[in-house]
Design a binder for these strands. Structure first.
Lengths: 333, 333
DNA sequence: CCACGACGCTAGTACGTGCTAGTGGCCTGG
DNA sequence: CCAGGCCACTAGCACGTACTAGCGTCGTGG
């Protein structure tokens, strides 16, 4: 019921609280921050808390950040390709867990040729996490801002953050098509947002799994749902004897299935297509899309725990994301 | 080519730059901030800039915010329902324009029962924009943080920010179905993310347009693509003689069309369905979905300009968002 | 020759909080 | 009765930048 003293135009500071409570400013800080190793009598504590509540005191976060050197902000730099359905759940859950630990997760989409300083210079986050690795310039910029905790660690060679499972999905996709007797497979991705390292990583995983199953190479084709490239791709696959398509995500799968239907290629008899993520569209599509689902909420929680430990300087040595890919069988395979 | 002096562990401050350039700290500030009304000789200016560049100086944003009282951050509070495809384009464009004006747009999804302080307390943004109106508690919290510029203005009665066109889409949807001879219309929305005020606003707009065309009332039904509620809705509509469905967005339209196909109701002969947003799924779906498109990029730019003017304290008196809804005719109508 | 203004720069304070060093008072053990 | 320690609290510095007041110098007009 913070009854703010809206009469005063100046914002309420700890000094105001101290004056009202009849103590020094330091005491106010001790009480409100529950400073360990500092004993405060019950009476004083209550007077301070009461005064703070009555005045509607909110600490100035800029001053806190300046004085303490910590901002309690965790920055997550997103890739510039669109965030998928499942990734949003991932982020939501990660944000929730970080919130419980007293951190705020701020997401940031890189702006290649921005005028302003990148967001990490503006927020001075305690740590920065990236879905993909950072460029040397970006690393230098972060270091210059005093940001020490950067992940993926620029010192190591980790092109993609492990906190999102990459290979489990594609492996399962390939295995599923294999079990349905499909031997000639192809990989499909969108061309529009420039193919990212995630596309490459998933394709690599699919290719490797196919190789280990003694299947012929799984080539990748980039399609655009707006022009006729999906039609071209489906025709080319059909001509080359491809009977199974591994799609980067459900949207790509939908574009492939859609093109096949219009051309007259039967799904799944002539061509089996499997998506990735189990987004809403997979259920709604006609035919419904077989896909691979992740427990993204769990993954997000895993990332958050990882992030908290890293941010607080006690990294878990052998941390692995809790991976669990589940096959969702529907009509497209 | 900021060659940072990585040898020093301490972060580079303006004092370091001043020492290297052989001037006072104040002069460094004048040069780097291009302070108006302060003349600096060309030689000094160059020495300072050179020193700053060589040391890799990055101003401490927390200290800047503390000293200046401004953070150059614009916070956009998003509703807790998922951000749609078109809205992402809107945000991207808004972010770009704000960036050019030297502001960073940070988006924030409200966390109803969060442990940490809301993001506006952590960032002390120069202004906060909300898609929906704020609760009195939130307003109090923002005011307590010294945030003066809050939109929608709590003083006025604007439930929904005008910067995103609300009524033009639904009106066009209804008109389109009307032109195709559909007289008994229904409105469809998802039940899952709790129906928001945006759902209500669009439904209201559709209902009003139908009323002005002398059509019977347009009732709303909430469906879930995961259970059988879409089937139930389609059956109920069919029984009630509904021949046209106005969908909240393309996803909802897809769910309706999907249910209709599975039941055996012909699209568009028995039931015409029109979506909203022209998201990728509308093209890919079979049948392709008729929909309504917005020039969301222009709207985003409009919002950004509005936000910049408001933030810098020169509000445009009669500002209106640049609305332009376009009908996209496809197979579902 | 001097008053005066403009130029170019510096010293120093304010911003609000975290936190260390220190300071009385009280209690206890010898 | 006193030394010593703990309790409860305060004074004051540090954080790094923005910005005002002021100061010396130089040129110029009277």
């Amino acid at each position: 019921m913070a009854v703010s003293e809206a009469t005063a135009k100046r914002r309420v500071t700890a000094t105001d609280v101290a004056a009202v409570a009849g103590v020094s400013r330091a005491t106010v800080g001790f009480v409100l921050n529950r400073t360990r190793g500092q004993t405060i009598s019950e009476g004083t504590r209550e007077r301070v808390l009461e005064a703070a509540l009555r005045l509607g005191y909110r600490p100035n976060s800029a001053a806190q950040a300046l004085a303490s050197g910590r901002s309690r902000i965790v920055l997550f730099v997103l890739p510039d390709w669109p965030v998928e359905y499942s990734f949003r759940i991932y982020l939501d859950e990660a944000s929730r867990v970080l919130d419980e630990a007293g951190y705020s997760l701020v997401t940031y989409t890189r702006r290649p040729h921005g005028e302003t300083r990148p967001l990490w210079e503006l927020l001075t986050p305690d740590s920065v996490f990236g879905f993909t690795s950072f460029s040397p310039d970006e690393i230098a910029s972060m270091r210059g801002c005093g940001i020490r905790r950067i992940f993926p660690d620029p010192a190591r060679q980790e092109p993609l953050d492990l906190s999102l499972a990459v290979s489990a999905g594609p492996r399962l996709q390939v295995e599923h098509l294999y079990e349905h007797g499909r031997r000639q497979l192809a990989y499909a991705a969108f061309a529009d947002p420039l193919p990212s390292s995630l596309v490459q990583a998933r394709h690599d995983a699919a290719r490797e799994r196919a190789h280990s199953l003694d299947l012929p190479p799984v080539d990748i084709r980039y399609i655009d749902y707006r022009d006729g490239s999906a039609d071209d791709a489906v025709r080319a696959w059909h001509g080359a004897g491809v009977t199974g398509v591994v799609a980067f995500n459900d949207d790509v799968a939908a574009a492939v299935v859609s093109a096949a239907i219009r051309i007259g290629i039967r799904i799944p008899d002539d061509l089996a297509v499997i998506g990735h993520d189990d987004s809403p569209i997979a259920t709604m599509f006609v035919p419904a899309l077989s896909t691979v689902r992740f427990d993204t909420a769990t993954l997000g929680r895993g990332f958050a725990e990882y992030a908290i430990n890293q941010t607080e300087g006690r990294p878990l040595p052998d941390w692995r994301p809790p991976v669990s890919a589940i096959l969702v069988r529907r009509e497209s395979t």
